[in-house]
Simulated scan of single mutants.
Amino acid sequence: MRLELDGKSFGHREILGRITLTVSRGERLAILGPSGIGKSTLLRILAGLDSRFRGQLEGGDRLALVFQEPVLLPWRDAIANITIPTGCDVDTARHWMEQVGLSGHEAKFPRQMSLGQQRRLALARAFAAGPDILLADEPFASLDEDTRARMLALTEELLTHTGAGLVIVTHDATEAEALRARSLRLSGNPAELQKD
């Protein structure tokens, strides 16, 4: 995946400036910066969810996205929350639920699961899609310290096991360290990437 961004604005307000970014399978990148700097906007551009920018995005990489909130289907059980969005079969969904420690929860609905379990289900769904690159938008926000540490360790293990690349946006440098990701900082007005 390669982004050659000339700029991104909302109305007359320029949010992102000139950014060149290349990410390959197996490479891990953390984009750091304070709230409101444009991290999530940059991730949405990389994900192909925002095409209203000046520049060019190239690459045929298979992507999976993990949002700040789990974004689950409340009317479907855990297995369906994996099979429906990814198109994988039930055995694959069960495999990934086992990988994230959710064996035995296959028939539960999201409302019957804790936030930590919902986050793990969202992670299982992302890996079930078989991504070349995982895009993550502050997926560990609002978790207690123990759950956050477990989720970071689990994500790092799954990335290593699958060989998937990672682009994570966060304001916490310790998350980048835990995931063994190269850090870049988004700063300025309009924001541009700097080595952290």
Rank of each mutant, 00 (worst) to 15 (best):
191 A>L: 13
177 E>C: 00
161 H>L: 10
192 E>L: 04
105 H>T: 14
74 P>L: 11
167 V>E: 07
180 R>S: 13
137 D>L: 10
38 G>I: 01
117 Q>P: 03
165 G>H: 11
54 R>S: 15
15 I>M: 01
17 G>Y: 09
17 G>L: 09
105 H>I: 00
158 L>T: 02
100 V>T: 08
149 A>P: 00
27 E>L: 00
15 I>W: 00
65 L>K: 05
188 G>D: 07
98 E>S: 15
26 G>Y: 07
113 M>N: 04
136 A>S: 11
39 K>H: 03
116 G>T: 03
164 A>M: 14
98 E>V: 00
122 A>T: 01
89 D>V: 04
70 P>Q: 06
94 R>L: 13
26 G>P: 07
171 H>F: 03
78 A>K: 03
123 L>S: 01
49 L>Y: 12
115 L>W: 07
78 A>G: 01
151 M>T: 08
1 M>E: 07
130 G>P: 11
3 L>S: 04
123 L>D: 01
13 R>N: 11
157 E>K: 15
135 L>V: 11
67 F>L: 14
25 R>L: 04
163 G>E: 13
171 H>P: 07
133 I>K: 08
6 D>W: 01
41 T>A: 14
179 L>I: 10
133 I>Q: 06
57 L>S: 05
93 A>K: 13
121 L>G: 04
64 A>P: 08
28 R>C: 00
171 H>I: 05
164 A>L: 13
153 A>T: 12
21 L>M: 08
166 L>G: 03
2 R>G: 02
132 D>H: 14
18 R>A: 13
175 E>H: 15
157 E>T: 15
154 L>G: 07
27 E>P: 01
154 L>I: 10
193 L>E: 12
170 T>D: 04
37 I>G: 03
148 R>H: 05
